[in-house]
Nucleic acid binder design. Sequence first.
DNA 1: TAGATCTTATGCGAATGTTGATCGTTGAAG
DNA 2: CTTCAACGATCAACATTCGCATAAGATCTA
Lengths: 221, 221
Amino acid sequence: MRMLIVEDDRDLNRQLSEALEDAGYVVDKAYDGEEGHFLGDTEPYDAVILDLGLPQMDGLSVLERWRRDGHSMPVLILTARDRWSDKVAGIDAGADDYVAKPFHMEEVLARVRALVRRAAGLASNEISIGDIVLDTKAGKVTKNGMSVKLTSHEFRLLSYLMHHKGRVISRTELVEHLYDQDFDRDSNTIEVFVGRLRKKFGSSLIETVRGLGYRLQEENA
Amino acid sequence: MRMLIVEDDRDLNRQLSEALEDAGYVVDKAYDGEEGHFLGDTEPYDAVILDLGLPQMDGLSVLERWRRDGHSMPVLILTARDRWSDKVAGIDAGADDYVAKPFHMEEVLARVRALVRRAAGLASNEISIGDIVLDTKAGKVTKNGMSVKLTSHEFRLLSYLMHHKGRVISRTELVEHLYDQDFDRDSNTIEVFVGRLRKKFGSSLIETVRGLGYRLQEENA
DNA sequence: TAGATCTTATGCGAATGTTGATCGTTGAAG
DNA sequence: CTTCAACGATCAACATTCGCATAAGATCTA
């Protein structure tokens, strides 16, 4: 995890970076708004600690410019002032959290932990196989980056297969997972859907294992 | 967006819920820890405001139990105490933010906005998609810079979709987040509102994924 | 109470799911 | 090597479900 600290008080900056480094983070330091803005704009940080009262460019402006430019890394605001209107401004400018000086180092660490934890939870859920990518969260499938339109059953079938790629899946297992209890066992719906998927993705995607079921090729890149 | 307020002070609870309702949220209320825990455990909230000092079960325990059971909705802790050790405990128990009583309603609103925003992985209070911009702070929507007049439910629906753009949202999920507990599950209100939004913004805005739900096109710049 | 907003009801048309007949393929036995 | 039976693939017709528009009834609000 790589962090940026933007704080003009050298003493405080050092205290913070020591504490964070002890906690196992890699830390970059900036001592004024311009330098801080530049670093945050060019380097990929997992979190930023940003003082509001800064020389050159004030913290709020730095934050606003980052957000306007589409940077969404978590930012923890640090400030001596604690009038509530400042807090509101900071939060609405896109800060993720807020600590008023003077603070206890423990609190800052706890909040940074929370920020990093939270940001990790937002990663999108993608499974890929060859040039096919299935995004379970967006409910979308792409092949070579091109979005492929699937019906809801086609999607569910593909999704199940991709979640168990490399394993042979019996027709029975598929039926059990795609349909509710009472469904005509000897119907060839599954075959039909496999066929439709093959038509959309090429016949090499789903391998049939005669007598047992189907299998998605393991990553054979 | 649907919120839960857990606060035993009836007066404060009412104040909070009125403010949140005015801001366009759907609000459920609980007046003790047990009731609060139960609701948070069973209903899907977009954010929770949780007092620490509660009868039946104390706030921190409520939070810990939620987290242990895998609920990850954002929680804003509210408390009269403001010793920093309580803050750290709260944060490490999985709180996302913290406000000390007495507070300004404005600040709570800003923090709630931030929580909801952050949970969606957004950096700013303005969400845009194509030439449409939704301002969650002002509760306004513009298309090509021109303000568009929406009714309250139209706004809520659009807001929820925009907070989750790119994802397929089921009708069920929409109903659960736009209405409180007792609402007829199989009603076609959602369809009707989707239709109205399409009439106002053009039919390409909301994509329907048959059998699954609706989706806002991801930024396809 | 009027006007705006929200909800329910209905019927149509299209997208999707299912079926069964038929055709192709596989692998083992003769 | 040929033949056969079992199994899987394919296709088109058929059935069903789903979503949408529209409008009327219900409810809220100023």
